[in-house]
Amino acid sequence: MNARTLLARAGFALLLLAIGAFALFPFYHALVTSFRSGTALFSPSLWPETLDLSNYAQVFTQLDFGRTILNSVLVAAVVVALSLLLAVTAAYALGRVRFRGRGALMLAILGVSMFPQVAVLSGMFELIRALGLYDTLPGLVLANLVLTLPFTVWVLTTFMRELPKELEEAAYADGASPLTVIRRVFLPLLWPAMAPTALLAFIVSWNEFLFAFTFTLSAETRTVPVAIALLSGGSRQELPWGLVMAASVIVTIPIVLLVLAFQRKIVSGLTAGAVKG
């Protein structure tokens, strides 16, 4: 190895290090801060001096954080389930059935995802109140579906189009009904696309703040991002940074675990061997 390639490698490593630090430092900072309390919160030190878990204990005792997490999990899980159900069936129609206006419909679905959340906020508010879902979890589910459906439908439709048409026809010739074809043939083959899509939908719903903030009122229906934003200290001037950081760390962990779990499930090349290739 000559000096030039060595230098190039070192430069590349430095670049990676910089990107990694940029991405991870905020989380590291949150983690370190969550172990501090009182005036230590404002210490400029980069390393944790003590491992004080009182912030974590306080998050669960002082606030009803268990309930909040449960709300978030419920909303996200139902959103994911509904998104996938609707997206798979929609993808079948959009990817497989020839009908007039299919392209326009696809564009409309994509268009929906381009509206900023604020633009639909007041309309959504009216809708949710009219349905009697204000300050309820189903209301949040409905609102979050607006965010998740466009991309779940798009991803699954493009993936569905890639699946060989003969597979479906073979199943029909074998005597299957359209629903059976979706359940027994498409679902197993769509799994590699569904896993990451579900994960994305979960993250979107988990992180969603604006709808959750607007459409809920009581502490019983709060989701995690809203609960963290509404944490307040003893006085107006004091923000309980320790609590905020501890709560942030707690809610990041499920996402990290989910990503790790799904990563293993994402099987590639499942369609290999279906047709000659």
Partner: peptide, 12 residues
């Protein structure tokens, strides 16, 4: 019953 050119076996 039909046999396809591409076999169309269910890969999973």
């Amino acid at each position: 019953a039909m046999v396809f050119q591409s076999y169309a076996l269910y890969p999973h």
